[in-house]
Simulated scan of single mutants.
Amino acid sequence: MIKFFRHIRKNLLNEGLPAGQAGKTTRYFKYAIGEIILVVIGILIALSINNWNGEQADHKREIKYLKSLKNEMESNLKSVNTEEQRILDYMKREAVLAKIMSSPKAVDSTSDKTIFNFYYDIYNNDVVTNIETGAINEIISSGGLQYIKNDSIRKLIASWETKTAILKLQEEFLKDTSKKIENLFFDEELISTRYFYSLYASFDTQKLGEPLGENSLKPLLQSKKFESLCLLHYGRCGVMINRIYPKYKASLNEMIDLIDRELDK
């Protein structure tokens, strides 16, 4: 393209003109215009190339961010599904426990080992969903949002901290209830702590001594406070299953779907 315009300029310069100063002036004027046109065209081409290179670099950054974000969302979805199943298992066991506590006959026929297993299987483990936020944090902290073209993805990224905070808050409520239930298992007024510990397979009676006197965990099942806390825990598990996790999973799936569409373009 540049050679083409240089050829035109050369033709203008060599064009036969009448002799005299007026002819020389016209010829040099045309030459100057040709030079200006060539410079302008060169600048425009250079700008176009720079813009194209910049757009390509920005697109590569966007693809990198989107892929890392998708991997993170898929990992989070697996974590939510894992904890969701764990809570469902808790709720099944708690439903059995609640039914036992509603019947004095059932309480009498329940062994201490069974009561201990309810504690160990349900209340001894906190619900902690492993939510990864490294990719989102990097995008936000590095100014990467400017490279994400899809407005819906950008809005989801901007609101993700709030969505995660809501989930974590509900987990804290559940953890607090579990802690209160756990404390009752170590309440000497209800049961012997030494006896409760002796139900652990690792309890060393040689070093720690045998529990003294008559011991039973049944008073725990007859405690109204214990029953209320267990039902509260069951209800908060229900909130996680019916409200918190479904909304969070919907946002995860929405993000993954939006990213897939962008990557397919």
Rank of each mutant, 00 (worst) to 15 (best):
K70G: 03
K64M: 09
I87M: 02
M73Y: 00
K78Y: 09
Y65D: 06
K60W: 04
A57Y: 12
N53G: 10
N50V: 10
N76G: 02
Q85Y: 07
W52M: 11
R86K: 14
K78T: 09
S79H: 04
V80L: 04
D58H: 14
N81L: 10
S75C: 04
I43G: 07
L66E: 03
M73S: 06
I87Q: 04
V40I: 15
Y65S: 05
K70F: 01
S68Y: 07
L47V: 11
V40N: 08
Y65H: 12
Q56P: 05
E74W: 02
V80H: 03
T82V: 08
S79M: 02
S48R: 09
I41C: 03
E83A: 02
S75T: 09
I87W: 01
S48Q: 12
I41S: 00
L77N: 12
E74C: 01
N81M: 06
H59C: 05
S79G: 01
I43R: 09
T82K: 15
K60P: 02
A57Q: 15
A57W: 13
L77Y: 06
E83I: 03
R61W: 04
E55W: 12
E84T: 07
H59N: 15
N76T: 03
E74R: 08
N50D: 14
I87V: 15
M73A: 14
G54H: 12
L77F: 03
Y65C: 00
D58P: 04
I49R: 09
I43V: 15
G42P: 02
V40Q: 07
E83Y: 04
L47I: 10
V40R: 06
I41D: 03
N51R: 13
K70P: 03
L47Y: 14
L47D: 06
T82N: 13
N81I: 05
R61T: 11
E62H: 04
N71H: 11
I45Q: 09
N71Y: 07
A46F: 08
I49F: 13
I87R: 00
V80P: 03
S68A: 11
N50H: 15
K78R: 13
K70L: 05
S48T: 14
L47R: 07
L77K: 12
S68N: 14
K78D: 12
L77V: 00
E84P: 00
A57K: 15
Q56G: 10
K60E: 15
N51A: 13
E74F: 00
A57T: 13
E62F: 01
N81W: 01
I63R: 14
